[in-house]
Design a protein around this nucleic acid. Structure first.
Lengths: 184, 184
DNA sequence: GTCTATAATTTGATAGAC
DNA sequence: GTCTATCAAATTATAGAC
């Protein structure tokens, strides 16, 4: 793996576990065995790094949804693919969604990072709303949008609560209700 | 107002808008027109300050619920009081729930602050679960708990999304669905 | 591309005068 | 209780050697 990718991996991990404002270039460098000046070579400023991490994250999530939850797949599978993205990070590494964390800290971020986080949430809402319009063609678009927003919000909040309480059952309780709500 | 209270107010505002790791003792001091050494006099360490802010916040929320959403009140009013606490901060000052922010950043916090945040979420879940057991005595306790957790999670996520998208309608869409879900 | 070295600033925290 | 002064460490970031 290239140094650039290693930097992105380390930075993503720091953001998702501790937040954007509680790690330094030295932390990233130390995590992958280089010096902080080398990190600056690849990403001049912390905002540059944050923007790159966020853009890559968004693209990865959308690609994963296209792979596991493509339009041809059955509705229940598509919903499980969506929820599974949130569950995976929690289970494997006790991580937040990158954009859930950045969204909480949004007021402390530079404009390019802010915009990248916004695009992520818009894409999430759009994916779920599009899914719902397909499975419930009789429903108003505004209802689909409200249902989509509610599901994304609940998943983000479930990650916060499950991590805080150190109890995965919080996430599973919420996920089960979202799943039913989206499929019914 | 005492200096101590002014410090708590300023710190709470910083945490709820920017997060715990993006403000300093100097920021707090400057916000209320004193010097950082005076802040240290009242709260020796940043963890001490964080713990005090969180404990005060929890107590205030519970008191507010007891005032506006007491057990004698009608169910719809009680639910509105609960949701109104989250809506208020967003509407008035574009703020997160203090413990939603700290919950996201939980891994970067000291143990006393962590514990205080946990107590808040437990209290929120307990309040709503107790409400649901009263309004739906026929339902299992585990169902009430799952419904309570889901509502709190959705509200926390709704604050993140509404702030990120700079669009209060995100919160209102989620809040309307939570309200219906809790009252039905 | 990665390093050493360093600048300029900020941070959490303390000592001691008033 | 609040201040000035200060510390040691950490932070973002850059210059220049290799």
């Amino acid at each position: 793996m290239s140094t650039k990718d290693k930097i992105l991996d380390a930075a993503e991990n720091f953001i998702r576990t501790q937040g954007f404002n509680s790690f330094s270039f030295r932390d990233v460098a130390a995590a992958i065995g280089i010096k902080s000046a080398s990190v600056h070579y690849h990403f001049p400023t912390k905002d540059d790094l944050g923007e790159a991490v966020t853009d890559r994250y968004s693209a990865n999530i959308l690609a994963s949804l296209e792979a596991e939850g493509a339009e041809s797949t059955a509705p229940a599978i598509r919903v499980d693919a969506f929820i599974g993205i949130y569950r995976g990070a929690l289970k494997d590494a006790r991580q937040m969604c990158l954009c859930g964390m950045l969204g909480a800290e949004i007021e402390s971020l530079g404009d390019p990072v802010k915009a990248a986080v916004r695009r992520f949430f818009q894409a999430q809402e759009n994916w779920l709303a599009s899914f719902l319009r397909k499975t419930h063609p009789e429903q108003d678009d505004e209802v689909a949008r409200a249902r989509a927003r509610s599901a994304v919000a609940a998943l983000q909040g479930a990650l916060i609560m499950a991590r805080t309480m150190d109890d995965h059952s919080v996430f599973e309780d919420v996920a089960a209700r979202i799943r039913t709500g989206l499929i019914r």
